[in-house]
Amino acid sequence: MTTGSYSALSSYSRVQILHTLQKRGRRTIADLRDATGLHANTVREHLQRLIDGGYIIVETEQRTTRGRPRALYSAASGAATPSPIAQRKAREAAERGDLMRRIMPETGTTALPTEAVHQLDALVEDLASAGFDPALDENSLSVDISPCPHADADAAQRETLCAVHLTLMDGVLSHAGGPLEVTGMAPSCNPSDCVVQLRFGRPGSR
């Protein structure tokens, strides 16, 4: 696995937890314990790492009956379930990108709207901090992060890892705010190839 901002996902157990939350949402610790087979205390430790990374959020259950409210965990996904940590990261990436474009105007030549540029700032910075070397192609709206670090993983694990990371990348775009969204990976017979495709699809897209 990679390092940096995705270090919270260096454990496949955390990937499993996040995958469960991405698919089902609003799960309790007991739900996640049953889904993963992990001890409840281990689940708690993993959840805290994922919260600190901006990948999940926690809210208190609203009860209409007597009893202690439970903590409910959801995958952070932008507008639907925003993470303040992920929003801050996206905002700071956009600020750094704007500063770089002011210092080096030649790097700011683009036909994309400002909101989309800020989304790409956030995505590229997030991938770079995760240990990838993303190659952005604005014309084809694609991001090449080959070679895939999970190419040698078991096929079932690789499928889960890809699904989780694609959803995370789309979450970065969503938290940044703008029209771009992830559509999936470009087809390839080589597991080491990883080209993620984007499109204008969110409200406000052209």
Rank of each mutant, 00 (worst) to 15 (best):
L166R: 15
K89F: 01
L166W: 12
D98Y: 01
S146R: 04
M185H: 06
T114I: 08
L173M: 09
Q157R: 00
T81R: 15
G177T: 07
V172I: 12
L180Q: 04
S192M: 11
S188L: 08
R101I: 10
A151L: 02
D133C: 09
D152M: 00
A76E: 06
A122V: 06
A90H: 01
P69V: 00
H175Q: 04
D126F: 03
C148D: 15
D121N: 12
S83K: 01
V182G: 06
S129F: 00
A90M: 04
N190H: 12
H150T: 03
V195S: 13
D133M: 11
N139R: 15
R96N: 01
V195H: 07
N190Q: 11
P113H: 04
S142Y: 11
M169V: 06
P191F: 00
R102M: 13
S188K: 10
A151H: 09
A176F: 02
V196P: 07
K89T: 02
K89P: 07
D170F: 05
A80P: 13
M185C: 14
L136M: 15
S142K: 12
I145K: 03
D152W: 00
R101D: 06
D133A: 14
P113Q: 07
I85R: 10
P147V: 07
S74D: 14
V196W: 04
S74R: 04
R101L: 08
G131I: 05
A71K: 14
M169G: 10
V117Q: 11
